[in-house]
Simulated assay, not measured.
Amino acid sequence: MLKKHPTIKKNDKVMVIAGKEKGKIGTVLKVDSEKGRLIVEKVNVVKRHAKPNPRTGQGGIIEKEASLHISNVMVVCNKCAEATRIGKRVLEDGTKIRTCRKCGEAVDA
Rank of each mutant, 00 (worst) to 15 (best):
Leu2Ile: 12
Lys4Glu: 10
Ile8Gln: 00
Asn11Ser: 14
Lys13Asp: 14
Met15His: 06
Val16Thr: 06
Val16Arg: 10
Ile17Thr: 15
Glu21Trp: 12
Glu21Phe: 12
Lys22Pro: 00
Lys22Leu: 00
Gly23Trp: 03
Ile25Gln: 11
Ile25Asp: 01
Thr27Asp: 08
Val28Ser: 13
Val28Pro: 02
Leu29Met: 15
Val31Lys: 06
Ser33Met: 04
Glu34Phe: 05
Gly36Ser: 02
Leu38Asp: 01
Val40Gly: 03
Val40Ser: 02
Glu41Ser: 13
Glu41Trp: 11
Lys42Ile: 01
Val43Ala: 02
Val43Cys: 04
Val46Pro: 01
Lys47Asp: 14
Pro54Gly: 05
Pro54Lys: 11
Thr56Ile: 08
Thr56Arg: 06
Ile61Gln: 04
Ile62Tyr: 04
Glu63Ala: 05
Glu63Leu: 02
Lys64His: 10
Glu65Phe: 04
Glu65Trp: 04
Glu65Ala: 15
Ser67His: 09
His69Ala: 06
Ile70Val: 14
Ile70Arg: 10
Ile70Cys: 11
Val73Ile: 10
Val73Thr: 05
Met74Ser: 10
Val75Glu: 01
Val76Cys: 07
Lys79Met: 15
Lys79Pro: 09
Cys80Tyr: 15
Cys80Asp: 15
Glu82Arg: 15
Thr84Ser: 11
Gly87Val: 08
Val90Ala: 09
Glu92His: 02
Thr95Ala: 11
Thr95Gln: 13
Thr95Cys: 07
Arg98Gly: 02
Thr99Leu: 06
Thr99Arg: 01
Cys100Gln: 09
Arg101Glu: 11
Cys103Arg: 08
Glu105Arg: 08
Ala106Tyr: 00
Ala106Ile: 11
Ala106Met: 08
Asp108Pro: 03
